[in-house]
Amino acid sequence: MFETPDPAWPVMALAAVLAVDALLSVKPVEFIRECLVCVNFPVEWGWALVWIKLVAVAGLLVGLNAPGVGVAATAGVIAYFLAAAAAHIRARALGVTFWVNCLGMLAFAVGVLLISFVL
């Protein structure tokens, strides 16, 4: 059930989107910077989020052929965006970035888990 993804394309799409997200976070573009500030996350610690996203990308790609790694990486991405959603709710930062970026990525990752590993 959780061996390798079938189909694999949703996992590859999630990895691609996370890679772009990580690149945009290296020197945070305005909407990412605003998001960090809204949830009171220190912008100077943004490098940690870049590494978390890059490790997730690596896990997703390795998981295409390594049994169990892909589902674990996908679960990690879901946990990351659940934590981000909790931070937004706690900070009452419920604007467009919360609904589109945070919850959108959470829904995307849950969809990947369901399509590639569960169904």
Rank of each mutant, 00 (worst) to 15 (best):
M1T: 06
M1W: 09
M1E: 11
M1N: 13
M1Q: 07
M1V: 04
F2G: 15
E3V: 14
E3R: 10
T4I: 15
P5D: 04
P5T: 02
P5L: 06
P5E: 06
A8S: 02
A8E: 13
W9E: 15
A13F: 01
A13P: 04
A15R: 02
V17M: 07
V17R: 15
V17D: 07
V17T: 14
L18A: 09
L18P: 00
A19S: 13
V20D: 11
D21P: 06
A22Y: 06
L23S: 08
L24C: 12
S25L: 13
S25R: 06
V26E: 00
V26A: 01
V26K: 01
K27H: 04
K27V: 07
K27T: 08
K27Y: 10
P28Q: 03
P28F: 03
E30I: 03
E30R: 13
F31P: 06
F31W: 02
F31Y: 10
I32W: 10
I32C: 01
I32F: 12
R33Y: 00
E34H: 09
C35N: 07
L36C: 05
V37A: 01
C38M: 14
C38N: 15
C38V: 04
V39Q: 09
V39G: 10
N40W: 09
N40D: 13
F41P: 02
P42A: 01
E44P: 04
E44Y: 15
G46K: 09
G46I: 03
W47I: 12
A48V: 13
A48E: 05
A48T: 13
L49V: 07
V50M: 00
W51G: 06
I52H: 08
I52R: 11
I52K: 11
K53H: 03
V55G: 15
A56P: 04
V57N: 02
A58M: 04
G59I: 01
L61S: 10
L61T: 14
L61G: 10
G63L: 07
L64F: 05
L64Q: 08
N65Q: 11
A66E: 08
A66L: 10
G68A: 15
G68D: 15
G68N: 05
V69Y: 10
V69C: 01
V69E: 02
G70T: 09
G70S: 03
V71Q: 02
V71A: 08
A72G: 05
A73D: 05
A75R: 02
A75C: 08
A75N: 04
G76N: 13
G76A: 15
G76P: 15
A79I: 00
Y80K: 12
Y80N: 12
F81M: 02
L82K: 11
A83M: 12
A83W: 00
A83H: 01
A84H: 09
A85P: 03
A85E: 07
A87T: 03
H88D: 00
H88G: 00
R92V: 06
L94W: 05
G95E: 10
V96E: 15
V96Y: 09
T97G: 12
W99M: 07
W99Q: 09
N101A: 14
N101R: 11
L103N: 07
G104S: 00
G104R: 06
M105D: 00
L106V: 00
A107P: 01
A109T: 03
V110S: 08
G111C: 04
G111T: 09
V112P: 04
L114E: 08
L114Y: 14
L114T: 08
I115N: 03
I115C: 04
S116E: 05
